[in-house]
Structure formats: structure tokens, C-alpha cells
């Protein structure tokens, strides 16, 4: 089946485009020319396959191109080290840029209708001068036992086989049950149609669809980046290791303190699995039993 797929892809590989790419400006770092075309193709195909309900095994085979033969799907997770994080907000803006998160504007912001796939939660206690405060970058926790998925009346949200809590924007009817159900408030409703000036439209990431008015949107763990890196690895015939995924999502990539780590929780040797065992590890609202896949490491004390 893999071979068949490979030949199918080769069929659509445009040779003259590659030549043109190679003759292009030599001062640039070359990105994979084939990547985007393949991505369109892969996007199309995964859609088609899902439609036709292709046997699960095949889907697994397609998704699990990086593993070493054994069919075990990864389970994506994230670890955020609060001892390193300085709440600079780099992750927030990086996420916005990568995922075409719309700008609310001053008036909507006053109504608290801003959208943040990645936001900084703030905790504060005490009075001057004995004040304690903490900021935590919070993406969707991608709970294993996700309350938002349970309440969706139309099946617009589901947990993918790799553990990502995904949202099908086209299927969402905007009832906002999920935004209410999410204990982490990580789901956002589009109160208005996104507005970008003609100039800003240049910046939109073609890998991520924009969302219309009236649907709920959320973090995807930069799913499109995972897919992209797999396709590229397949083309180059290279195996993917934990290192390739470690700082893959836009938030993790941007973090100047390298406080955000991403990876496969099913892989016992991955960095996230290692960090998750830290004595400093905790989850947000553990008592709810949502079983989040985002783990925090609390900030340590000096000489601890």
C-alpha cells in the first residue's frame, strides 16, 4: 500500500517546477519545493479517505510514516517549564501569526472577545509587598477525557487518533456548548467575521484555513506542521526522531527560553516523557479528571 501511495505521489510531481526552483536566487535558504504541492495532495487525500472510510489500518500506516515498523501511533503532548518561562508573550504572537488567528480590535477587546489559541493565564495573591504572581502560557490542554468533545451536539469536535482534540470548523454550528464545557477556557467563538486589510492578507499562512463568523476555534498543536515535517521526511527518505518534533509547534519554536517542549508521550525516550516524570510536574485542574496532555513544571525554589 505504501508503495502504491508513493507512486501515486510521484505521478503528480512536477519536474519543471523543480528545475525552476533550483535556478532561483542562490542567496536564499532552499525550502522543499515539493512540500506544499504534496501537502495539498495529502490534505485532499486524507479528506477523501476519511470520506470513504478506508480501513483504520491504512490510515495508521499513512500517519505513522516515521516509526520504525511497529504500528504505534504517537500521542502528542507538551511540557511547559514555568521556571524557564518569563511570560514574554512570544508564543502568543507566534501562534497568532502561524494559525491566522483574527485580530479583535479595540471595541471587541473591551467585550473580552479576543481570540488566543495560546494565552497567558495569570494568578495573583497577596498584598504589597508580599505579593506572589505567576503567568502560565496555556494552549488547549488536549485532554484525553475532553469535556468539550462530549458536549458537542453535531460531532464537530473529536479526539484524533494521535490525541489531538480537533475541531471541524465547517461542521460547527456555533452553539458554544464546548466553550462553556472547557474548564480551561481554551475555546473561542468567532463573534465577528475576521477582518484583515488587503495588506495583512499577504501574511496569512496558506497552510491553515481561516474561520468564518459563528464557529468555535481552538489550538491544533500545529497539526499542519506535524504533517508537513512527515511529508518532507518521507520525500527525503529520512526517519524522524524526537528531536524533529521537540520545538515543532509555533509556540515552542518561538519561545526564547525554550520553556515549551513538544513530543510523543507514547515514546518513553522522548523529551516530553522524560520531563513529565519530573517531581515538579503538575496539570491544570487535575481534580476534574480531564487528563490533560499539557504538563506544567512548577517554578523551582533556589537551592531546591
Amino acid at each position: 500500500m505504501k508503495k502504491l501511495l508513493a507512486s501515486f505521489i510521484r505521478l503528480f510531481e512536477p519536474k519543471e517546477r523543480e528545475e525552476r526552483f533550483q535556478s532561483s536566487d542562490s542567496i536564499v535558504t532552499e525550502g522543499p519545493a515539493r512540500r506544499t504541492i504534496l501537502q495539498y495532495l495529502a490534505g485532499a487525500m486524507s479528506g477523501v479517505f476519511a470520506f470513504l472510510y478506508i480501513p483504520k489500518l491504512f490510515v495508521k500506516d499513512l500517519l505513522n510514516q516515521h516509526s520504525t515498523g511497529k504500528v504505534q501511533l504517537p500521542k502528542w503532548g507538551m511540557v511547559i517549564d514555568l521556571d524557564k518561562c518569563t511570560t514574554c508573550g512570544g508564543c502568543v504572537v507566534s501562534c497568532r501569526a502561524e494559525n491566522n488567528v483574527p485580530i479583535a480590535g479595540a471595541d471587541q477587546a473591551d467585550k473580552a472577545r479576543m481570540i488566543f489559541w495560546m494565552d497567558i493565564l495569570v494568578e495573583q495573591e497577596g498584598e504589597y509587598p508580599d505579593i506572589k504572581m505567576r503567568g502560565m502560557p496555556t494552549p488547549c490542554n488536549h485532554c484525553e477525557n475532553a469535556p468539550c468533545v462530549k458536549v458537542c451536539p453535531v460531532g464537530a469536535t473529536y479526539i484524533s487518533e494521535e490525541g489531538i482534540v480537533a475541531q471541524i470548523w465547517a461542521r460547527c454550528i456555533g452553539c458554544r456548548y464546548c466553550t462553556t464545557a472547557c474548564p480551561y477556557t481554551r475555546r473561542y467563538f468567532n463573534w465577528e467575521a475576521p477582518q484583515w486589510s488587503e495588506e495583512y492578507k499577504n501574511q496569512l499562512n496558506p497552510d491553515v484555513a481561516t474561520r468564518p463568523k459563528g464557529v468555535v476555534e481552538k489550538c491544533t498543536f500545529c497539526h499542519h506542521r506535524i504533517r508537513k515535517i512527515r511529508e518532507q521526511a518521507k520525500i527525503e527518505g529520512q526517519a524522524l526522531t524526537d528531536e524533529n518534533f521537540r520545538y515543532l509547534p509555533a509556540c515552542a519554536q518561538a519561545c526564547p527560553a525554550k520553556a515549551i517542549t513538544f513530543g510523543d508521550l507514547n515514546n518513553p525516550n522522548s523529551e516530553v516523557s522524560r520531563l513529565k516524570k519530573s517531581p515538579r510536574a503538575f496539570h491544570l485542574q487535575e481534580e476534574l479528571g480531564t487528563n490533560p496532555k499539557v504538563t506544567y513544571l512548577r517554578s523551582a525554589k533556589w537551592k531546591e
Binding site: 495539498y40 490534505g43 479528506g47 476519511a50 470520506f51 471541524i168 484555513a209 504533517r227
Partner: peptide, 17 residues
């Protein structure tokens, strides 16, 4: 590709829009 992309839009997480 356009046609295939459009099909994929609604079903996959990302799309080519």
C-alpha cells in the same frame, strides 16, 4: 488539486483555502 483541496477543506484540520 483545487477540487481535491476543496473536498479536503471541510474534513481535514487544515486546508488550502
Amino acid at each position: 488539486l483545487k477540487a481535491a483541496g476543496a473536498t479536503a477543506c471541510g474534513l481535514s484540520l487544515t486546508s488550502c483555502g
